[in-house]
């Protein structure tokens, strides 16, 4: 008699949350990385406010995208190495649901702090205040699919000893639509337009990714483990 699915799902969330809490220094890495890159731009481009303001929204997007790649590498590798992926596969629970739990936790731990940080980065770089709410909304819609694509790539490379650049090579092309529509939405607002169309497209992409991503991710894990 195996336990109910909800029990397994929340058990996994609880276990990984405790693990993240014990390694909370690592969780902060993407946030520190984002802050660091944001301070480098004014140094490189010069302190001229008008020039910075023009690139602020685009730079914020690229920073968030790159920072969210940082912690992907270990998403499944530790489970493959310590055998807990085997335990999940041997249990009679659907792997896709458990994987969805892991992706959710990754999003909460990596993307949410970056979303919280993003208005500060954008305003510090001189983006007009009118674009901030759209930036946050677009990030809320775009980051789930970035996490899902990232998880699929992490699953494919989980059995490699180090994935290195391979992971980024797989994820970045997949994340390009989210980047284009997300940055596009913010630009539209800044020139006084209505950002509804890019935001709807982002939402559609997000729903598609969240609905099918865990299934793809689970079969990628099965494939790379055997």
């Amino acid at each position: 008699m195996s336990s109910p699915l909800g029990d397994a799902f929340f058990g996994l969330l609880a276990r990984d949350a405790i693990g993240l809490w014990r390694r909370r220094g690592e969780v902060l890495n993407p946030v520190l990385f984002a802050l660091m890159v944001a301070t480098l731009f004014p140094l490189a481009l010069g302190p001229e406010a008008a020039r910075l303001a023009r690139v602020a929204s685009g730079v914020s997007w690229v920073i968030v995208l790159l920072a969210s790649l940082l912690s992907l590498d270990v998403l499944f590798r530790s489970d493959v190495e310590d055998g807990s992926l085997d335990a999940m596969r041997v249990s009679q629970q659907p792997l896709a649901v458990l994987v969805a739990g892991k992706i959710l936790l990754h999003w909460l731990a990596t993307a949410v702090p970056l979303i919280v940080l993003s208005p500060i980065i954008a305003l510090a770089l001189g983006m007009p205040r009118i674009g901030v709410s759209t930036l946050v909304l677009a990030l809320l819609l775009a980051t789930p699919q970035i996490s899902v694509f990232g998880a699929c790539a992490a699953a494919l490379t989980a059995s490699l000893h180090r994935s290195g650049i391979l992971l980024s090579l797989i994820v970045l092309p997949l994340a390009v639509p989210a980047l284009i529509f997300g940055a596009g939405a913010v630009e539209t607002v800044l020139v006084g337009g209505n950002p509804a169309q890019p935001l709807f497209l982002l939402a559609a992409g997000g729903i598609l990714a969240v609905a099918f991503g865990p299934l793809v991710c689970a079969s990628a894990l099965r494939m790379s483990a055997s």
Binding site: G19, D82, G83, S84, D86, V90
Partner: peptide, 14 residues
Amino acid sequence: ALAFLGHASGLKLD
């Protein structure tokens, strides 16, 4: 269901 114990213990070190 079955119980499987491989070379790796399936337990988290943290």
